[in-house]
Amino acid sequence: MVVEDLVVSYGDLRAVDHASFNAAHGEVTVILGPNGAGKTSTIEVCEGFRTATSGNVSVSGLHPLRDHAALTRKMGVMLQGGGVYPSSRVGEVVGLYVDLYDKGASADELIDRVGLGHRRSHTWKQLSGGEQQRLSLALALAAVPEVAFLDEPTAGVDVSGRQDIRRIVTDLATTGCAVVLATHELDEAERLADRIVIFHQGRVVANGTLAELRAGNDGLRFTSSPELDDTELARHLNAQVTRGPEGRFVVAADPTPSLVARLSQWLADHSLPLNDLRTSETLEAIFQRIVDSTGDGQ
């Protein structure tokens, strides 16, 4: 999927502002950003639900609007709001979508795969929020898709449900499908993404693999007491130590076991706590750093 210089405006509001990125087959591309960042508008243009103000979008070599009929045969869609009639039963609605796509998927297998085997005869309105998300995912899978658009797939889903959905999404990419997943949940993105596209105020502010987004920002990260003397610690470790908010510190050095040992010893000698020790930057930290660097961080 190729998105080039995409602009989506609603009257005076520019929801998507010259966004460009690619999504490849066999990969999970996570579109990340806070609510209102332009994720859903971008995905809806790619699905052919929304008209772009300007720019080019190509999905599996097809134009989402002009070639919509052909695209529907290749595309699986999971809408944010579900899109199922409240009195539809699980078995019926999955059966219907299997017949609509007619690509050999089995309704029973799909229902079992998303963990709704015990809810076959329940209606949409009888399902919990997490179960509704599972059903929506089953409808997307009924397409046996080449490209799947999943909008907030884990919203409202419990811990075990999230694990199931993660497994299904990863399996989907393994079959060669290009999975495009929009979320504002950073830990979800970190676990799933092969590639991350960060949206902020309608613009793509970062685009790459997690490793690429972390590049140049290696170091040992930890949380301790705000009383910690970072100048003395830097002298002891022979490395630059940066103080962050709420007792967070970054040691700008290769996070080797030896460095970790020296840090631990120094903290112990000074009776200071050691928490949240990490040898890489979290996606949350990456996101904050990138948003801050745009000069209009929230």
Partner: peptide
């Protein structure tokens, strides 16, 4: 109501057309 619930939108993304 199907329009409000997003049913029409969802079906619009299938080969049903």
């Amino acid at each position: 109501f199907e329009r409000s619930y997003g049913v029409l939108k969802r079906l619009g993304a299938t080969p049903l057309g």
